[in-house]
Design a protein around this nucleic acid. Structure first.
Lengths: 132, 132
DNA sequence: CGGCATCCCCTGGGATACTG
DNA sequence: CAGTATCCCAGGGGATGCCG
């Protein structure tokens, strides 16, 4: 695999298959519609369910619950239930969740840097003949 | 925004909204089922359509075409058509595509490092009472 | 308060067949 | 060879309503 600084299969013992598999595993954690927003929100501190619901804005309760459950299953978010009269539930980032903000911010920075490049319209889809 | 090394809105002028927006923009480019695999494949060198189809393996032609078109629209992949008898089409990474392999590999490395942490079963979903 | 349950829609992906 | 066209299915997301 010729990708940047990653060692090849010969010496470093990293196969393309593993790279694809692992990369997709992370992406699967993040590609849900509201995952990033919730993650960034909790990075600002612990929140109650209703607080997250309010701060995210347009999300439905069902989607929020699904998102939080998924993040919890992936070990990125911790859920704590306080058995009080009206139930209180608090969500926060786990250490694992925190460790993921690094790569996540790297993605953001890439997008910010290459914003116009990525936004500029591609050349029309015509047959492009190579120079003779 | 308290996320790692990113400056706050006050001084650095980076809003949560922009971070969420830009991060999701990149994720949208990558979250398609076969995007990563195709990207890694083309990182190994230019490929013809049929070569990609064969090397990826289980992908359908329809999905591959859609994936390539999407990657092309996002400016990550270049498409070159040779007007020959049986049509020949070659796909390769653009400089923008190459620049994305960095953050992408960062994701892979995170996944590789935290593989068991992410894989270990979460504690059963019971009410967890905070220490008194 | 913090969810499930239900219903409905829309998109992405697979399989197959056809074409310039 | 490099796609389209067509049909189908599964799952994610929104809206609403009910509940301990």
């Amino acid at each position: 695999m010729a990708v940047s600084a990653v060692p090849d299969t010969a010496a470093g013992e990293v196969t393309d298959y593993e790279m694809v598999r692992d990369t997709r595993r992370v992406l699967a954690m993040l590609s849900r519609k509201w995952s990033v927003e919730v993650l960034y929100l909790l990075a600002n501190g612990t929140r109650r369910y209703s607080a997250v619901l309010y701060e995210v804005g347009e999300i439905s309760k069902k989607s929020l619950t699904r998102t939080l459950r998924a993040l919890e299953r992936d070990g990125l978010v911790a859920r704590r239930v306080y058995p009080e009269v009206p139930t209180r539930v608090e969500y926060s980032l786990t250490p694992l969740g925190w460790s993921l903000t690094g790569p996540l911010v790297a993605l953001y920075e890439w997008s910010a840097e290459h914003a116009q490049a990525a936004a500029e319209p591609q050349r029309p889809r015509l047959a492009i003949v190579p120079e003779p």
